[in-house]
Amino acid sequence: MFKNFKCEVVYNLWLREMKRFVRAKSRLVANIAQPFFWLAIMGMGFGSTMKFRELPPGVDYLNFLVPGIMGMTLLFSSMFAGLSVLWDRQFGFLKEILVAPVSRLSIIGGMIAGSVTTGLIQANLILLIGLFFGFRISHPAALIPAMIIMMLIAVSFTAMGIAFASKMEDMHGFQLIMNFVIMPIFFLSGALFPLEGLPSWLSFLARLNPLTYGVDGLRALLLGLSHFSIQLDFSILILFCLAMLGLGTYLFKNCEL
């Protein structure tokens, strides 16, 4: 299965994604503006007016929010990158990609490489903004495992986006996915509120949500505050990532033009 995996092809698709990323300035601004507003308005607004009884003393809401918003940024940018297969289909460039004598696996590899790079750039920009607002990283060395968590989140949701895009004929399904997949995953991930003391149905849904473990892992590493053990976070993320890679590759291989 991996014998046809070509790094040149991965590089080629990655390079294309980088060029597009650098050129689409408005996209970058939009991608950063939204999380920025979440941090600035929600973080400051709720943080200064409300007291979350589940937060330990010394951790204010803004600190709590930063890893959550990083998770959100990764979720959005990765899903969009995966779903951009739809745009490529619409504008015809997918034909050029799929007819080339390269394995589907290398193509997916290239798309994911591009998406992970742009996702990490954006998530780290959010982290920088967070630092500016007063966020403090518990220990600098924790940044490295945190990067791995970010990568796992990015890979998983890019593959999920590719899987959806492979099954959709046109762009009409995009709004549905936005409203019924991306938004619920975000709201139910514990990005915005602590998981302690939730009503049981909400807690149940949050535990089903893979992003929950990503956000929890980031929070554990960057803030030293977590709901699950870091081992559990990693295990679930890795499993989810493999499952999405399998699904994305399978569906993408079988998609028609």
């Binding site: 060029k19 034909k95 080339a100």
Partner: peptide, 16 residues
């Protein structure tokens, strides 16, 4: 795919 090349009838360029 390794033996062919193709010019499509419909657009297939990346305009970015």
């Amino acid at each position: 795919r390794r033996s062919i090349g193709i010019v499509f009838q419909d657009p297939s360029l990346d305009d970015q």
